[in-house]
Simulated scan of single mutants.
Amino acid sequence: MAGFRIGRGRDNRTPRQQPQRQQQQPYGQQQAAPPPQQQPYGQQQWPQAPQYGGQQDEPEYFGDPYQGGRPGRQAPPPHGGPGGDPYANNNPGHTQAFSVNEDPYGDGNTYRGGDTHTNAPPSGPRLHWKQLLSGIVMRPGPTFMQMRDYPVWGPALVVTFIYGMLAVFGFDKAREDVINATLSNAIPIVLSTGVAFIICGLVLGAVTHTLARQLGGTGSWQPTIGLSMLIMSITDAPRLLFAMFLGGENALVQVLGWATWVAAGALFTLMVSKSHDLPWPKALGASAIQLIALLSLIKLGTI
């Protein structure tokens, strides 16, 4: 019975005693001493998995070039700089979305006339009214380029009003009616003609601006209308000056009428091209209605 009990006890070992028996070294063999660099058993520190975002339950990413590098090598800062967002735009694996017609490589200073969302500076300082009037005749290209961002209501309204009052004397029949009328009747006729020319200039300038925008222009409406009124008045001044004394049927007045009309077409085309960034064929098409209206209302009355 004792042997049976001893055998039964040896075969029915508990699970707790079995791993302890396996951890024992074989008889006659001793555990080798740890290498010099290795720390004693029980004090060895094992490398921990890299942490992302300060959480322990996230998956471990292998192959990170900044983890587990050579001894003495310091890992560079994460993407986005110190304290930056590793998922920010323009970082590896993350791209930035751009809107339609947006230049991601531009400096943002491309000129777009009339566009209030751009920070593009004007082409130059605002010109004085004397420099503006002389510049339209002497150097129209740089003048239109420099004044395409500035409204010119003051010079445009004053010059057009004076031109309208003098235009009465450029027509033979209208001049005779004003001269033969009394002063109280002549003054309202002259003033009303000046106001009528202002309204006509505003309407024709608005038509030119609208056509320019329909053809792809980007200019602002205030400089376009103001400069068109100045061009209309200044280009017809030579013909009007001679028509006041020689009459509209004079041969010199007729030649000046055609010449100034062609000059007005060239200036309108150049102004719309500079103000709206359009090629000259489109700029000429945008100012065509205004040119035809000037020819029929003013030029044909004396030619």
Rank of each mutant, 00 (worst) to 15 (best):
P82G: 13
G53T: 02
G301Q: 14
G205S: 08
R139Y: 03
P19C: 02
L300H: 02
A266L: 15
L127T: 01
L211G: 04
V195R: 09
F245Q: 13
K130D: 10
G219H: 00
N250F: 02
Y111S: 04
L284Q: 12
P279A: 14
L294T: 11
Y66N: 15
L227T: 13
G9E: 11
F144K: 10
Q254L: 11
I234E: 05
L183H: 10
I189M: 14
F4R: 12
F4C: 13
T118F: 02
V207E: 02
N109L: 15
L295Q: 05
G257M: 06
P140Y: 00
P125Y: 03
P34F: 02
G63I: 03
Y111K: 06
L252Y: 11
F242D: 04
R148M: 04
Q29T: 08
A156G: 10
H79V: 10
W153L: 12
M145P: 00
T208Y: 01
Y66L: 11
S287R: 03
R175K: 15
G54W: 04
F268G: 04
P140I: 02
R175H: 12
A243L: 05
A88E: 05
A120E: 04
L166D: 00
Y111T: 04
H276D: 01
L227N: 11
P82S: 13
V168S: 07
C200M: 13
P121I: 07
T210A: 15
Q25V: 06
V190L: 15
E60Y: 10
V255D: 07
G42N: 06
P65T: 07
R10F: 10
K130M: 10
M165Q: 10
Q51I: 12
F98A: 00
Q55R: 12
E58R: 13
G106Q: 02
G106H: 05
Q67L: 01
Q51N: 07
A167D: 09
Q29S: 07
Q20P: 03
P104K: 00
G54E: 05
G113H: 05
H209Q: 11
G135N: 08
P34L: 08
V253I: 07
G141H: 11
R139H: 15
L211E: 04
G205L: 03
C200K: 12
P34K: 07
G69S: 13
H209E: 12
Q20E: 07
R16M: 11
Q17I: 11
T116G: 14
Q44W: 03
A186T: 13
T95D: 07
L211W: 05
M1C: 10
F98I: 01
S275C: 13
G201M: 00
L133C: 07
M145H: 09
T302W: 08
P104A: 05
P35H: 04
